[in-house]
Every structure is written in structure tokens, then in C-alpha cells.
């Protein structure tokens, strides 16, 4: 059964729009707002930053738009690579702890990471224009996230704390994607490229670097507060009950 001419035209336009949308990409820009742009003195790539039996419990508190379990897993991986023994907990809003790692020896440091979505902006006008222009005009969406990090010792003494904020601006559309893709290809150096997942790597590098620096600072503060006394061994004394 053949469709009338105007319906066939509508179907063609619809298919064209879908095809354009399928081939269109996003350009996401990451901007550190608070804290994350500050430099650090520690090299997070060094595997010996926390080798002297540093035991850490990372507790991730979930927030809107934040996958706490993924964050905890990534932080564990990052700190473990630097020599720390890391266990993780995801604290649910009810206060319950979900699937904690098995803790064999008590942690020396407890890191609480509270993440939240501070701001979200999605321009309805631009979204409409984006659709009307077959994505030639980009739709822009913006998120601002915040992290509050507190590090305490086993007795609950606050050793270090820091707040971070960052913003992601995502532009969706053929025009912005193609234009930036061409500029990335021809002009921008690799470190400045905006298409692809470079923003994720940059943010992860910033956050994990600062987290490592904060833990290092907390460790030194604990030493100073104990008047440089040697840390007690994690080994259980012989003869104690299991």
C-alpha cells in the first residue's frame, strides 16, 4: 500500500533526522570550579606513596547523578596502586552500609566522600532549536557536581577535609560535533581536544590526585599529632583470640 506524497515526505524527513542524530556526537567540556584546579605536590603515579602499611576505609555517600559504588571502586583502585590497603563501603541514604568489603585489620584512616549534584541546567529553547535544525544548532546541558571529602583517624579525629566542585557542559549536535572534530583533527593538540572521553580522564586525574594528596596530608598530620611516635603495628599480638 503506497503512502500519500506528503506522508512519504514526512517519513523521509524523519528517517533523515534519525540518521543525523545517530551520527551526531557530544562535545563535553570539563571545568574545575573549586579546589580541583589547585596543583598537588604528590605524584599519584608513584606506587610507593602509601607503602608503609597504610590501611584505608573509603566510604562513599551517594547523591543525585552520582554512582557511589563506581566512585568507591575507582578510588580503591587508585589508592591501591599507590601502595595503600583499601576497603570500601557504600553508605545508602538510610544509613545502611551496602556490601562492605571484609575488613581484616582496622583501618588507620577513614575517608568519607559525599557527592552531590549542585546544579543542572538544560535549555528547553536550545533543545527545540536543536530538533528544528536537525541538530545543527547544539542542545546544551550543564551539570555542576560537588564532593566533600573528610579524612579521620581510627578514633574519629578529623585530620583533613576539602571541598571540590566541577562542572560539565555537554553540547549535542551535528554542527558543534563536526566543527570541533575538524578543529581537533587539524589544529588542537591532543591535550586540548574536546571530542571523545578526554574530559572523564581529566576529571578522574584531578579528583584522584587531590584525594591522594589529602590522604598523604592526613597521614603526616596524624604523625605530627602523635609527636612523631612510630605507628602501632597492624599485626595482631600473638595469643589473642581470633
Amino acid at each position: 500500500m503506497a503512502l500519500p506524497l506528503h506522508q512519504r515526505r514526512a517519513v523521509k524527513i524523519g528517517l533523515a533526522a534519525v540518521a543525523i542524530a545517530m551520527t551526531t556526537g557530544c562535545v563535553t567540556v570539563y571545568q574545575p570550579l573549586v579546589g580541583l584546579q589547585r596543583p598537588i605536590a604528590l605524584d599519584p603515579q608513584t606506587p610507593t606513596n602509601f607503602t608503609d602499611n597504610t590501611r584505608v576505609l573509603v566510604r562513599c555517600h551517594p547523591g543525585d547523578g552520582v554512582e557511589a559504588d563506581v566512585l568507591c571502586r575507582n578510588v580503591r583502585s587508585s589508592l591501591s596502586k599507590q601502595g595503600a590497603t583499601v576497603t570500601t563501603e557504600v553508605v545508602r541514604p538510610s544509613g545502611k552500609v551496602a556490601a562492605p568489603d571484609r575488613i581484616e585489620t582496622p583501618p588507620q584512616f577513614i575517608i568519607d566522600i559525599t557527592s552531590k549534584l549542585i546544579h543542572h541546567d538544560d535549555s528547553a529553547l536550545l533543545s527545540l532549536l536543536c530538533i528544528a535544525s536537525f541538530t545543527l544548532i547544539p542542545a546544551v546541558e550543564e551539570w555542576t557536581f560537588g564532593q566533600e571529602i573528610r579524612i579521620r583517624d581510627a578514633q574519629g579525629f578529623l585530620l583533613a577535609q576539602q571541598s571540590f566542585q566541577e562542572r560539565f557542559v555537554e553540547s549535542f549536535g551535528l554542527g558543534v560535533w563536526a566543527l570541533n572534530g575538524i578543529i581537533d583533527l587539524l589544529i588542537r593538540p591532543k591535550s586540548e581536544q574536546v571530542t571523545g572521553d578526554g574530559y572523564k580522564e581529566e576529571f578522574t586525574r584531578d579528583l584522584h590526585g587531590h584525594l591522594a594528596q589529602l590522604l598523604y596530608n592526613a597521614k603526616v598530620r596524624a604523625r605530627v599529632m602523635n609527636s612523631f611516635a612510630p605507628e602501632p603495628s597492624a599485626e595482631k599480638p600473638k595469643g589473642t583470640a581470633p
Binding site: 605536590a41 583533613a160 594528596q213 598523604y216 603526616v220 598530620r221 605530627v224
Partner: peptide, 10 residues
């Protein structure tokens, strides 16, 4: 500072 890799003052 008491450690070359820290960024806090004591």
C-alpha cells in the same frame, strides 16, 4: 611543613 610532599602547614 614537616614532609616535602605535603601541602598543609602545621
Amino acid at each position: 611543613i614537616v614532609d616535602p610532599k605535603e601541602t598543609q602547614l602545621h
